[in-house]
């Protein structure tokens, strides 16, 4: 009996979707950058407090508006997941509505951020009256909120891209990777605000 090598056809691969995995790595890198800022902030703040000095001037930061930002972002988490589930169910109308709502919530967050920064009266360099520690606190306030805003802009661009692609007929129940990737990055950015909210605004 002759032995013959069979030519096997490779079975369909069950690998994680490329764009989702790429988004996962990119989100991890973005999160590490942001966490780097947060950890340095915590170390510097602890140093100032150990020296018995004031970090933010008392009463300079309101509790309400940052909470509203967080609430808005939580709503956007639901809408971005809604868009993903809608695409998986081949319900394009719901997907369009959900993606559009996500972008509306993002606009609301930018508006609230603008209000918060204006309300504090802080400046990047800090006023002379604030003293060295107060100046450093105001500097960090701008850097961390600014970094969050930059990441939010990137997330909005990502969602906008998926929105346009969905409008152009892309994505289907079997090919929802683009929206899943956008949702992953969006949720990472929301997590960044959760950390900011707790570290910068709640524990001040």
């Amino acid at each position: 009996m002759s032995q013959q090598n069979a030519v096997l056809t490779a079975p369909r691969l069950v690998r994680p979707r490329t764009v989702v995995v790429g988004s996962m790595f990119a989100s991890a890198a973005a999160a590490m950058l942001f966490m780097g800022l947060i950890v340095i902030y915590l170390v510097e703040r602890a140093g100032v407090r150990e020296a018995g000095e004031e970090w933010f001037p008392s009463g300079s930061i309101e509790m309400g508006p940052p909470g509203f930002v967080f609430a808005t972002l939580i709503l956007s988490v639901f809408t971005i997941q809604w868009a993903l589930q809608a695409i998986k169910a081949d319900d394009r109308v719901n997907a369009f509505v959900a993606l559009a709502l996500t972008l509306v919530f993002a606009a609301a967050v930018f508006n609230q951020l603008w209000f918060i920064i204006g309300d504090t009266g802080f400046s990047l360099a800090g006023s002379d009256a604030a003293g060295p520690s107060g100046q450093e606190a105001q500097f960090f306030f701008f850097v961390i909120n600014g970094a969050f805003a930059v990441f939010l802009i990137l997330a909005v661009a990502f969602v906008l891209l998926t929105f346009m692609r969905a409008l152009a007929g892309q994505y289907s129940p079997l090919q929802s990777g683009g929206i899943a990737a956008a949702a992953l990055f969006w949720n990472t950015v929301v997590a960044m605000w959760a950390v900011t909210w707790f570290v910068v605004y709640i524990t001040k």
């Binding site: 800022l37 990047l124 360099a125 100046q135 850097v143």
Partner: peptide, 26 residues
């Protein structure tokens, strides 16, 4: 690299903003 170089990037962000936009010079 993906979990460490972003931390270096955060250092660079702090240094750049501080130097170029007038921070507390820390």
């Amino acid at each position: 690299w993906l979990i460490t170089l972003p931390v270096a990037a955060s250092n660079l962000v702090l240094a750049y903003v501080d130097l170029h936009h007038g921070g507390p010079a820390t």
